[in-house]
Amino acid sequence: MKYSIIFFLVFVSFSFSQTKNEKEERIKAYEFPEIPLDYFNTISSNVKYLKFYRETDGTKKSFEAKFKYNKQHYSVEFDTIGNLEDIEIVIRKKDIPKTVLMNISKHFDDKFEKARFIKIQKQFINTTPKTDKQFLDYILKKPNNKHTHFEIIAEIKTKEHHQLRELTFDKDGTFEKSRIVTSASYEHALY
């Protein structure tokens, strides 16, 4: 009995950690962390549709700026004190290099009966000695430079499930992680 309870608790906690249940709330610029807000003041004349958001997923809070720059849709995420977490750019399936797309497609073919890509993003995480501001400026100037990950929201079907999932692959198309996207997260995940 004791082991059954322990197994159940581990299973439940693992299940919850694998679900994307974010809530996103649009906020005014003055509610955004001050340091990264200044980053956008220097590029605001070239940015369209700049909007600020506060995100919570139950345990983690973050801030996100979304905008269009040079015909590309960006989302830039910061932690609560203003440190850059990642930069994402929405892309199309045809923008993924062929060999990388083959690796990603193989994962989908092996794991799911059917899959439909809803949103694809290339993701940049600053692993360089550049400051957050320098890294953001660098990516804005060179969005086709090397990125670190692909993040794909897909509608998938297995024998047991029909669900939305967010899957992360490294730059070579090797699968890293997956989590279910809840309906509450679905709306804002599409931009």
Rank of each mutant, 00 (worst) to 15 (best):
I43K: 02
G82P: 08
K111S: 15
K130T: 02
I96L: 03
K51L: 11
H73Q: 10
K111G: 03
R116L: 14
E24G: 01
N21A: 11
K93S: 12
L101H: 02
F40R: 01
Y53G: 05
P97Q: 04
F40W: 04
K130S: 10
S105D: 14
A115G: 04
M102Y: 11
F108I: 02
K20F: 13
L50Q: 03
G58K: 06
K119Y: 03
K66H: 05
T99E: 14
S44W: 00
N70R: 15
A29T: 06
N41Y: 12
A29G: 00
A115V: 09
R54E: 11
F124P: 06
S44G: 00
N83D: 12
H73N: 15
F124I: 06
I120V: 14
P33C: 11
S44C: 00
K48C: 00
A65N: 05
F117H: 09
P36G: 11
D57N: 15
T128E: 09
E34V: 11
K93T: 11
E22C: 01
E22A: 07
N103Q: 13
F40N: 02
V76P: 10
V47D: 02
F32N: 04
F124A: 10
P33G: 10
V47G: 05
D38I: 02
T19E: 12
P97T: 05
